[in-house]
Design a protein around this nucleic acid. Structure first.
Lengths: 246, 246
DNA sequence: CGCTACCTTGATTTCGGTCAAGATACGTGG
DNA sequence: CCACGTATCTTGACCGAAATCAAGGTAGCG
């Protein structure tokens, strides 16, 4: 079964705020896991959740709002690594080295849920489905990252933007928001940075897609008018097919 | 502590053939883990270990030889995802979906070690340091993948090749082989494919680096003559600094 | 020994980056 | 509520790194 499906269903059922728990947990287990979570007060736009170099102690999930992770090189240039929407977990890259190698910043007013990692390790030993879930969550991140590598290494600017928008679209659908009409929480600069493109290129492609009646763009508001043609552009089969193959 | 260090030391100590076990295991535990491993007979060059679509049941480590993982798109084009040297684990991307989404093929005569995943889950519940180790291993793969994303999205052809060679160099050092003189187990085509470059570009840059006395290339034999300048080209600090920062 | 796969080198083209200049939106304080 | 300044976004002109096209060269294998 696909982790993403599991996630949406169970998040609501268990009210575990984005920990994406399997629903095989008992009442009692849900209670235990829930007790381990720390819910933060809202984080203002541009405030950081953690910074590169910070000691690693917790994983985080987005409860509301949006987060970007990024690293800064010696020349001071920022490199956007990922965007996280409600229900998604971030900070996974820090488990290995014991400190954060990237920073995380709120793209808008955001609430996160903190999960102390030592508690998580402990719980996943006691609750087998929890351990299994964590393995799958980490594995899922690896597949996604490899997907992005393919995109960055082989695809044209238009294909990248197309894939990016379709990706967002399906993530919004998963949380029962409109997959055709949504607001981009990040700036054009961030999109370009993430996709390995200049801002100007992102802008130009947005207008081109708009001219071809595939997209309607108004600032950060995006409306996908022709999902099918967008898939063609992204060199991806329509999502329902992709889902069926799983 | 860095997972890679742990790994080299313990692999030898425990003789667990690349499972990269922590050395905190007791005699008894080592025995148990060792019993779960299946050692394969050698795999011929170009033979697959598993193929995309196969049901996922095991993770693999390379014992000797080398492996590449790749996916094939609808047009039949291959996309190289990664190269694996002795001691490295592959197949991690399959945990989530329950079937392999990429294929793995031997680049030369290769022996692998198979680790049934259900046994691994079970063991990691019983042996806390084993679970902790697996989390770090998965997290490490995520960091590496994100590093590659940066390379693919932002770096020039020369920087990519430079980083690639330095990466190989440090992986060879980890297994106590010469970090300055080694044999590339993969074809130029595979390198280009992996780095998002045309074969011609890879070839041209190899000759250019050779002309500048940074590299000596003879077919698949590579010798790094000027490690420091190669680091500059790769936009990376020399490895000893990188190691010190950890 | 010859075939095929792999590698190298050169000539030409092209996609997307860079530079430059406006336009639009946004937050702040008067 | 509006004016101002700053961020962000868009559009155009030009340029360059690497892809593509083309043609030989080399090496490993049956």
């Amino acid at each position: 079964m696909d982790i993403q499906r599991k996630y949406t269903v169970s998040c609501q059922a268990c009210s575990l705020n984005g920990l994406c728990m399997p629903h095989s947990l008992s009442e009692k287990e849900v209670e235990i896991v829930d007790a381990a979570l720390k819910r933060s007060k809202p984080i203002q736009r541009n405030k950081t959740v953690f910074e590169a170099g910070d000691k690693f102690s917790s994983l985080y999930t987005v409860r509301s709002g949006a987060v970007k992770t990024f690293s800064v090189d010696r020349e001071g240039d920022e490199h956007v690594i990922g965007f996280y929407l409600p229900g998604e977990m971030f900070g996974l890259d820090a488990i290995n080295s014991g400190h954060h190698i990237s920073s995380a910043k709120a793209l808008e007013t955001t609430a996160v849920c903190e999960i102390p990692f030592n508690r998580l390790e402990e719980l996943s030993r006691r609750i087998p489905s929890m351990q299994s879930h964590m393995y799958r969550l980490l594995s899922h991140e690896i597949s996604e990252d490899q997907q992005l590598q393919l995109l960055l290494g082989k695809k044209t600017a238009e294909e990248r933007i197309g894939s990016f928008l379709l990706g967002l679209s399906s993530r919004y659908r998963q949380r029962h928001l409109s997959p055709t009409s949504f607001r981009l929480p990040m700036a054009r600069t961030d999109i370009g940075n993430y996709l390995g493109l200049a801002v100007e290129t992102v802008s130009r492609i947005f207008t081109r897609l708009q001219k071809n009646d595939i997209l309607k763009v108004d600032g950060k508001e995006v409306c996908i008018l022709d999902h099918h043609r967008l898939c063609e552009i992204a060199q991806k089969e329509p999502t329902y097919e992709a889902a069926a193959r799983r």
